[in-house]
Simulated scan of single mutants.
Amino acid sequence: MIRVVVVDDQELVRAGFCALLDADPGIELVGEAGDGLSAVELVRSHRTDVVLMDIRMPGMNGIEATRLIRAMPDPPEVLILTTFDTDENAFDALAAGAAGFLVKDTPPVQLLQAIQAADSGGAVISPATTRRLVDHLVAARMQRDRPVPAGLETLTEREREVLALVARGCSNREIATRLRIAELTTKTHVSRILTKLGLDSRVQAAALAYQTGLVKPGD
Rank of each mutant, 00 (worst) to 15 (best):
L197S: 01
V4K: 10
D87M: 15
P127E: 14
N61H: 09
D92S: 14
E183C: 02
G16A: 07
R192H: 13
D92A: 14
V30G: 06
D92Q: 11
I193Y: 04
G62S: 04
D200I: 01
D54R: 06
R146D: 00
F17D: 05
T106R: 06
E64V: 15
G16Y: 02
V50N: 08
T212V: 14
A128T: 15
V166D: 02
R3K: 13
M60R: 15
A39N: 05
R67C: 09
I27L: 12
T186D: 09
A128P: 00
M72A: 15
D85N: 11
V148K: 13
A39Y: 03
A95T: 14
A176Y: 03
D24I: 07
N61Q: 04
G169Y: 10
S191W: 04
L12N: 05
N172L: 10
Q110M: 12
D85R: 12
S45H: 10
D200T: 14
G121N: 08
L184G: 01
A90M: 03
R178G: 00
A95K: 15
I193K: 03
L112F: 05
A139N: 03
R132D: 13
G213R: 04
E159N: 01
K187R: 13
E77Y: 00
R47F: 03
G26H: 13
E64Y: 01
S171M: 03
I2V: 15
I55G: 01
A114N: 03
V6G: 00
L21V: 05
R47G: 12
R132P: 01
L68S: 10
A182I: 00
R192Y: 07
V103P: 04
D119K: 07
E11G: 08
V51C: 02
G31C: 06
A128C: 01
L81Y: 06
Q116E: 12
E77L: 00
R141V: 10
G122R: 09
R70N: 06
Y210C: 04
D119A: 15
L165C: 02
V148Q: 08
A39T: 10
T129A: 11
G100A: 03
D145T: 12
E32G: 02
Q116I: 00
P76S: 07
I55R: 00
P147R: 06
L112M: 08
L52Y: 05
A96V: 13
Y210P: 06
P58M: 11
A96C: 07
M1A: 13
R14H: 02
